[in-house]
Nucleic acid binder design. Sequence first.
DNA 1: GAGTGGTCTAGACCACACA
DNA 2: GTGTGGTCTAGACCACTCT
Lengths: 236, 236
Amino acid sequence: MKQNKYKLIYEEIVEKIKTGIYLPKTKLPSEHELVAHYETSRETVRKALNLLSQHGYIQKIHRKGSIVLDIQKFDFPISGLVSFKEIASKMNKDTDTVVHELSLIKPDEFLQGQLSVGKDEKVWKVVRSRKIENEAIILDIDYFLKRYVPLLTKEICQGSIYEYLEGELGLDISFAKKEIVVEKCNQFDKEFLDIDGYDHVVVVKNNVYLDHANIFQYTESRHRMDKFRFVDFARR
Amino acid sequence: MKQNKYKLIYEEIVEKIKTGIYLPKTKLPSEHELVAHYETSRETVRKALNLLSQHGYIQKIHRKGSIVLDIQKFDFPISGLVSFKEIASKMNKDTDTVVHELSLIKPDEFLQGQLSVGKDEKVWKVVRSRKIENEAIILDIDYFLKRYVPLLTKEICQGSIYEYLEGELGLDISFAKKEIVVEKCNQFDKEFLDIDGYDHVVVVKNNVYLDHANIFQYTESRHRMDKFRFVDFARR
DNA sequence: GAGTGGTCTAGACCACACA
DNA sequence: GTGTGGTCTAGACCACTCT
């Protein structure tokens, strides 16, 4: 796969940070030196450095250089858009997904609002619970516009829907509005989660948009309170 | 105050979006047209557009243009680092701050870890509760390194500490690691919050860093569950 | 074929850090 | 005074979309 020069530089530096060639609290080579090393122009080097900065790998200090941040301290970034599969693999724990429902529905008023569609638009509804170490602690309810996702099967839902959407269908997921609130448990939480006496769940609501700024998914991810954790790296 | 050209362009376009001169779902002028209009170079225009994109104002669509997003849909962004004062003014509600404690302490082991300092470093501890419409629903516990904040008074804590730090002291806050979890209420929550029968609080933990990547603050913001809301705009 | 945004280049000037 | 990063310029080529 062909890459852009600045992305290649970015990835090479990320690699050097991860493998300890560049150590936390030390300085990266100066922009001038990177220009020489990668035989490119300064703006290109700076694009790579900006990416590193945005992703929390380095901190640029005016007139002094770029210093490497301790990524250990910023571990477990659920920020951005990350699927359960990705999180699960990072956590290195036994996980399992149970599909409770997969159907084509007509959106009610709430869903018409969330997905910005009319009542005749067809929508996939997927309900899945997620087990970590044999406890069902997350209930995911996904709604996808059929317009963009012609086919969904139980097998796909069992695995990673996102992998399928991006890989097989070539959908280009671009951004999301994420909202986190706490709600009282409803009957579904009680039915599908090992709720363990808690009467509230943490709900992460996502409106997900494709690359042409068209929404294609609304999701509610309902977490058992005690197991919920959200980490973010925010620049001012 | 002198501004950079790309920031000026950014701000002018933000203004035009907010005042409806550029409408949601319509296209911005092309980069070429913006270059002509602002009499600048294309890379400079593109820096402005990148800012707009990062802040959720526009979506760039390859080979087609930049379209304006509906910022109404992405309201109330507590993402990034925002102080209570800023949030309060946006919400347009009656708010009040009560300072319960302001003292210089020696950090315990937990705090030494969070602030990456030794046991002899002096630390300001500030405990405040936040009232919205006469209900105490947030308990803020802040720890500042005295090294960077020589003086704190009750008056400052009553207002906006951040305004003081950035305005008076000229501290340059750069980034933060933010973590959201749910915890059981402790005695302080029960003492200082109108806890209203809830036995858990949503805790937002922040490690805040200055522009040289040196940490200077650790904060816990403890929210009554039913009033907690966190909204984020995340790009893939 | 005209227009678009994505990338890249090879310079330039600036203000400030540091020694 | 040297080195640093921040900003800006005036081009260029590309691959694709739209009409």
